[in-house]
């Protein structure tokens, strides 16, 4: 068996153990609610400006390209439908998750990696504190809750972006756009996106923490862990997106 294969199975095993310990430690998120709230602020509130920027352009470009793709054979009143469904089911949850993976996943891995390298995690243990309950559980709960919240925010901003572009340059009135959005809206459009966001939020925080915990090799190792956290989270987000979509719509 090659070294890479061995490392892969070690990582799968390590992640499984971490996930089990996080679930067993979930009650500590309530007893240490201050830590969880802090992480929710860092992950959620501080990500809002970047998510808003990404979302407004996502909505705008979706509207422009929808018009290009459907204008010859579908009436323009369906532009709101096309933008709404594309944003809610796919674009907002996936792009929000990828942005948060880059911004927060890397930060989690770097912070925990630095703590590992400077013996701060050992120090927590010597104070009889479980690093999983103290560091991972608040980040997991924050990711699990805040990704769906950010996704709802991204849905709203992206639809407004699509509405703005449709009205300003595609000659579709707000009334027509919103009717198109409303007439074919199904609750499943929103809930499927939110379900994906729950999964993506969990992936980002668990992978960030896992990579942080296994950091070795000083500053170089911390940088490597941050990069790995982003790459692995992004790949898992795309894979799980397909899996969830297949289960819900397949």
């Amino acid at each position: 068996m090659g070294r890479n294969t061995l490392v892969f199975f070690q990582d799968v095993g390590g992640l499984a153990i971490l996930v089990k310990r996080v679930f067993l430690g979930l009650p500590s998120a309530f007893t240490r609610s201050r830590l969880t709230t802090e992480q929710m602020l860092l992950m959620g509130v501080n990500s809002l400006p970047l998510i808003a920027l990404v979302s407004i352009f996502t909505g705008a470009v979706t509207a422009v390209q929808a018009v290009y793709q459907i204008s010859d054979y579908v009436p323009m009143r369906y532009i709101g439908t096309a933008v709404g469904k594309a944003v809610m089911i796919e674009l907002a949850p996936v792009l929000t998750a990828l942005v948060v993976a880059g911004r927060v996943g890397a930060a989690i891995a770097a912070e925990l990696g630095t703590m590992k390298d400077t013996e701060q995690i050992d120090a927590l243990e010597t104070l009889a504190l479980d690093p999983v309950k103290y560091l991972v559980v608040p980040r997991f709960v924050a990711g699990f809750i805040m990704l769906p919240v950010l996704t709802i925010f991204a849905d709203t901003i992206a639809i407004l972006g699509g509405l703005g572009v449709s009205t300003a340059s595609l000659h579709v009135s707000p009334h027509v756009f919103l009717n198109g959005l409303k007439d074919f809206f199904k609750m499943m459009d929103l809930t499927s996106g939110l379900l994906k966001a729950f999964v993506f939020g969990s992936i980002i925080s668990i992978i960030g923490c896992y990579q942080g915990f296994k950091t070795t090799g000083g500053a170089e190792g911390v940088g490597r862990s941050a990069t790995k956290a982003v790459v692995i989270s992004s790949v898992l987000i795309l894979i799980s997106d397909y899996v969830v979509a297949s289960i819900l719509f397949g």
Binding site: T114, M115, T118, E119, Q120, D122, A123, L124, T126
Partner: peptide
């Protein structure tokens, strides 16, 4: 029942 002083102090940043 233990306390430990680390080489680089390991204070929580």
């Amino acid at each position: 029942r233990f306390g430990m002083l680390f080489q680089a102090s390991a204070l929580f940043d």
